[in-house]
Amino acid sequence: MITLNLPVSESAVRALKVGDEVSLHGVVVTARDAAHKLMIEKHPGFLRPLLEDGAIYHCGPVMACENKVWRAVAAGPTTSIREEPYEADVMEHYKVRVIIGKGGMGPKTLEACRKVGAVYVHAVGGAAVVQADWITAVEDVLMLDELGAPEAFWVCRVTGFKGVVTMDANGGSLHDVVLKDTKEKRDALLGL
């Protein structure tokens, strides 16, 4: 298990490779569909200090508010591939070092990982309660009214958030490997 403290340096991220298990500590910012659309259309400046050398988490959490303090109830990853049209631009614009999500991403994002010096960390989909408990504090929420709770930017402090690097900064992608391997088996089953 490799510990990554956020914000993280480019060299530390470039040293990671596919298959590495990582444990994240520091601030991660949730962003999903509407947030990504907003980021590439408006490039809001208020995100820069949060995202530079930082982490984006593809997540639309269940949050509860008691006495004006937010806490994470359930906060697992959402499917990342929907952000494929946007993510490379977002990573380059804000110098994001870590993308956390599930299901993996495509060639555009893989190329951005290489160019920017970033990795994709796969979290286990649906393990939302365990992952919520790794969020030790919800420090802020941005654009809650405009985007709605699942789509807002939740600024989360995490401690020991676990994941596996499935796309690295050297062009490696576990998803490409699995796709190639399963395609051969599918062809055999279908008699193609």
Partner: peptide, 26 residues
């Protein structure tokens, strides 16, 4: 990684049931 993922899933479900929280945020 596959085995570890399913272990995480099973543990998650135990915690969700015990704490009456949605086992997935979606």
């Amino acid at each position: 990684t596959a085995r570890s993922a399913l272990d995480d899933v099973l543990r998650n479900c135990e915690v969700a049931r015990a704490s009456s929280r949605p086992l997935c945020q979606d």
